[in-house]
Design a protein around this nucleic acid. Structure first.
Lengths: 397, 397
DNA sequence: CTGAAAGCGCTTACAG
DNA sequence: CTGAAAGCGCTTACAG
């Protein structure tokens, strides 16, 4: 009456074995569905298990197998609609292969990231999908990567961690396309709202049109600069404004921008929360859109077709990003180091995928090989918030 | 060279013990931070652990302790902004107490829910926060509840599972307030878009003004009916329209509604995705809002102040809901069955909390006791999408 | 097909 | 303070 039930009320395999009159090995084989068992012991064990309310203990199983069928997913904020969509897709992709996810948010706090990594590692996740914070993340991830834990970087690359796979979108090209749209409409005073504005100096020196190793915000700023350059325009630091990652902060920032630079005729926002702040600021500014001022947002959220004018945006394939990341991780977990999720990603509806740097087999240690680079394509969706530049100046090619 | 490193490359406590020249018990005490250890062995063991790259195995620890410091969180869709916010808050609440979360989506599919529950149970989560599907969920959860697993129901009650705690909002009162606002503005032909429209018959017979045990959609419909009744209006089944949980479906539904019932002067939407569909439909209808038609949405999302007219909505405390659910679960996990998160919830900024049915201590078996009922308050936020009913009829009431 | 035994990596009484 | 031993719940060779 005291030792036949464990503390959590669930009997172990030895109780079931005893009740069924077989050894624990046989009970284990029946209940775990491995090895050989006779129909006779099968019925005895199953009946006993049923009667006692047996429930397998995944911890013991994982301890032996060395795998938990669980992957860690670390993002900055699951409350952000971008990550909500992406994580949903990651979940679906890995769950289809029988994996659960352990979720953590970092709010871009290195300490929180560190803590999440430590806990997940101790809980023995089989792999990791992570939207890293920045260069520091590479240091935090290195030991895990070197120990052979499959890691897929989501949305943000990490040049210092080449062995990890990464799934990103072509941010620079997207931004170039958005701003190119504006220059073709004749705009010459084009502002950009960016989280990476402080890095303008550095990015001005970046090789023309590249930004593959930059985080999204910086890569988009590179695209902005490239588009200006192509149109023969000089970047004006006063029009490259920084905003914290918060809608109301972005609203204040844009309001101030427009007040101080009345000649601005177009604004490009480099992500979803900055976009909503900019819409609010514009509505408040008294300027008509797109007649007096044009606006391009980032990330095609539902509300962008509900506001008036409908917002021209860069659409990024959020779900596909998550799907590709999840599939890539699964490929690593099953193919054991010879993964090529590039092929899988190419099956995705919208975006194409470009895998590069695939390790050609034969290397004994995949740890020293370089990970997949999967780049999904976003695209400009032109709607009503962008129009010809106002004033006498004619549109130029 | 072969047996000093495990398959995952991480040495176990016995390797560390050997390297440090102590017993595994002593090594365990140092590395696990329990028991008594001398400074001498502490340094020896720590040095060895450092050198070998020791990393504790949480599975073994959990197997012994009988707890995993992990809670399951099951929602219909983390991609939905409501759950994205709520889950974020749950995560923060439980993480503050040292717990991780295992996340699953069900898409309201009973089979998916069943599978998630099974896996989480086998992985030995210490507790569960779940937005259940409906009555079937009670059956699926019963065994776990009876085995003593703490369960907190998020957003949706489950009358058939009284032992679980539940955290909901006062949906009926919110809806009554929203529709009351419309009747006071003189509207008499008020439509409602609801996922629970098919249940109208049954709900018409519900005790006046109650809806505490109904899922949100039904509870809101009850509130709608109560508000009509109070205004002396008879509900018209033609104005209670069902829509699947999808923005575009909702848009079509509302368009059809308005076409067939040109005398409708107000529409109440009972959740966030239905609201965005309705806004789209209204914009498309050619009717001006609020002059010809008023609209009340549900769930105060960012975009509701970005559209014109700004949307009048019922604001629900999404984050607080998640926080209260997380705290309640933690209370159960630490207080061992004597939890009272009602007090905690009352500390939350906005909403008040009403705990009822708290079990008064002394009962030997908490399993037979009834769980907490925490009800958070939503409220109507009046903006520009609601105005006086058009036509000759004066406002009454 | 079946069972006794060893083991996954750690923790916990129990002696000393 | 320390170590030998047993044990958490399961799986895996190894004999039979």
């Amino acid at each position: 009456m005291h030792n036949s039930q464990r503390r959590d009320g669930s009997p172990s395999i030895v109780e079931v074995a005893r009740a069924a009159g077989v050894s624990t090995a046989t009970a284990g084989r029946v209940l775990g569905g491995y090895g050989q068992t006779s129909p006779a012991s099968r019925t005895k064990v199953e009946e006993a298990a049923q009667r006692l309310g047996y429930r397998p203990n995944g911890l013991a199983r994982s301890l032996i197998h060395g795998s938990t069928e669980t992957v860690g997913v670390i993002v900055t904020d699951i409350g952000n609609s971008f990550f909500a969509s992406a994580v949903r897709a990651v979940t679906d992709a890995v769950r289809a292969a029988g994996y659960e996810i352990l979720l953590a948010n970092t709010d871009s706090d290195p300490a929180a990231e560190q803590r999440a990594l430590k806990v997940m590692w101790e809980k023995r996740v089989d792999g990791l999908v992570i939207a890293p914070q920045g260069p520091g993340s590479a240091e935090r991830l290195r030991a895990m990567a070197e120990a052979g834990l499959p890691i897929v970087l989501l949305d943000r690359p990490l040049a210092a961690l080449p062995q990890a796979d990464q799934v990103t979108i072509n941010n620079t090209a997207c931004a170039r396309s958005a701003v190119g749209h504006l220059t073709r409409l004749g705009h010459r005073r084009i502002a950009v709202v960016s989280e990476a504005a402080q890095e303008l100096e550095r990015l001005l020196d970046a090789p023309a049109g590249e930004g593959g190793d930059e985080p999204p915000s910086a890569a988009r700023l590179v695209g902005y600069l490239a588009a200006l350059r192509r149109a023969g325009l000089d970047p004006d630091p006063a029009l490259v404004v920084h905003s914290p990652y918060d809608r109301h902060a972005a609203e204040r920032t844009v309001r101030r921008l427009l007040r101080r630079n009345p000649d601005v005729t177009a604004v490009f926002c480099t992500d979803n929360v900055l976009s909503s702040g900019a819409v609010a600021a514009l509505q408040d500014s008294g300027k008509s859109c797109p007649e007096e001022i044009s606006l391009v947002g980032f990330d095609d959220q539902d509300w962008t077709t509900l506001v008036r004018p409908r917002l021209t945006v860069v659409r990024q394939p959020r779900r596909e990003l998550g799907t590709a990341a999840g599939r890539q991780l699964i490929a690593r977990l099953t193919d054991r180091g010879q993964a090529r999720a590039g092929a899988d990603a190419a099956e995705l509806p919208g975006p194409g995928a470009e895998g590069t740097g695939a390790p050609e087999g034969g290397r004994p240690e995949p740890e020293t090989a370089t990970g997949e680079r999967i780049v999904l394509k976003g695209r400009l969706v032109t709607r009503d918030s962008t129009g010809p530049a106002p004033g006498p100046r004619p549109a130029s090619g």
